[in-house]
Design a protein around this nucleic acid. Sequence first.
RNA 1: GGUCCUGUGGCCGAGUGGCUAGGCAGAGCUCUGCAAAAGCUUCCACAGCGGUUCGAAUCCGCUCGGGACCUCCA
Length: 502
Amino acid sequence: MSLLIYNSYSRKKEVFESITPGHVGMYVCGPTVSGESHLGHARPYISFDVVFRFLQSKNFKVRYVRNITDAGHFEEEGREAEDKVSTKAQLEKLEPMELVQKYTNLFHWAMKEFNCIEPSIEPTATGHIVEQIVMIEDIIAKGYAYVVNGSVYFDVKKYAASHDYGKLSGRIIDELLDSNNREELSRDLEGQAEKRDATDFALWKAAPPEHIMRWKSPWGEGFPGWHIECSAMATKYLGASFDIHGGGMDLQFPHHESEIAQSTICNHCNPVKYWMHNNMITINGRKMGKSYNNVIKLTELFSGNHPLLSQPFHPMTIRFFILQSHYRSPLDFSNDALIASEKAFKRLWEAYEHLKKLPIGTNDTPDDVELDAKVNNWVLQFEEFMNDDFSTPKVIANMFEIAPVINSLKDGLIKLNAIKSSTLILMKEKFTLFLEEIFGLKSIDAASNEILQPVMELLLEIRKEAKTNKDFATSDKIRNQLTAMGIAIKDEKDGNTSWNIV
RNA sequence: GGUCCUGUGGCCGAGUGGCUAGGCAGAGCUCUGCAAAAGCUUCCACAGCGGUUCGAAUCCGCUCGGGACCUCCA
């Protein structure tokens, strides 16, 4: 069965066919490392990590490029052309590269916590200034950019005359161009005056004297525009046209629209076959963002140190929470929703642990034909759902359908030969594949450490003896004290006792 | 103002015109020395008003509400 991907460019689901059979080139806009990542940032990187993993499971050789934006972003484009990174650096009295390194490290740490596989290539904007300059020169040579006072701007009007600028973001170019004359948009921004048209965007900005991050260029010292870095790096590592470009919905315009324009002029072809955009994470119905002052940083989420949070949340809980909704749907954050996800995830993972331990028999004829068929169907739908534009919530729903069956098998409420041995093997195989390898989830349990393990065994043995002697005072004392210490114990149906750190 | 998306039960969230999404919370029962967990059962729903249809949460229109983008943004 083929993979369907919703292409933002065509606004419909399309059958995925990679440009080079067996290989996939995927570019995802990475973080701007001028500050700490927040919950909103987690979504694209987790969503596209799953895309990456799923494509690999389908035996594609994927080159996954995710950049680090460590220069070139404008805090407020046009108003005061300033480099975001250098602004912050002056504030914190750090060397710009020191700041960039700090937040890059923090970002990498968070990605590791989320169990995101590292991209194949993680290029930095500052490491590709030359490529960007070459690309800008090319655009100028082809007549689609002009130089003013040491800055270079892309000529949108000229480009739009022969290309469909605005298609990706559903923008109507005439209205954008008209908006030049509209009062509410003529904000009379500094630097705006240099542009021939308000819709033109900067490829290169001349650096004012106080600007720390600056590079020599044919147009004087300056720094690159925001959009050119992605075009330059994507072209360098994935070629003139590649398969998948991902990022947040909020990047569609102007960032991705401009990327298309730049690359199209340089390479004479549409750079991207499938555009994928994840929706936003909202908080009380509002997009999480600095301008709204409603961000929850990842460090706060993991530590629980935030007024909106009642407790710390494990990175896997966040990952599961994100996977419980479809990547193109808005996802509303709340403390309660996260608590619900945490419980749900723990329950599902526990069932998975039980599944792994179920013994495989040699039963070819199921006692319960109906159940056997149902389970088979649920499991086989995992891939079907993923093939339908990565419908992770549906896969999870099916896993929850199967969880009671697993628990019942484990407790003997359903006999093992109710289902075929091959069905059980299939369950084990697919749960591991989808839960661990594709969804990238792993146990939330604080790893039971080596010293604790034998101590617990001893304690539980003593408790078992007490129980056998009907000395419930002792057995309850052990249980209650352990509970107070944060260790929960459960008497299983088979007479054994399991434990875990809460 | 323009473009687009969206409105599902106490909460979060799937839903491709006809068949129980799922999770969390609530209620009851079973198992259990008691717990916890688990299992079973169960309550609560498709913003409103029209229309298309044998049949709509699902398609169309209108109204009301929410949001995103149009400026840095995941």
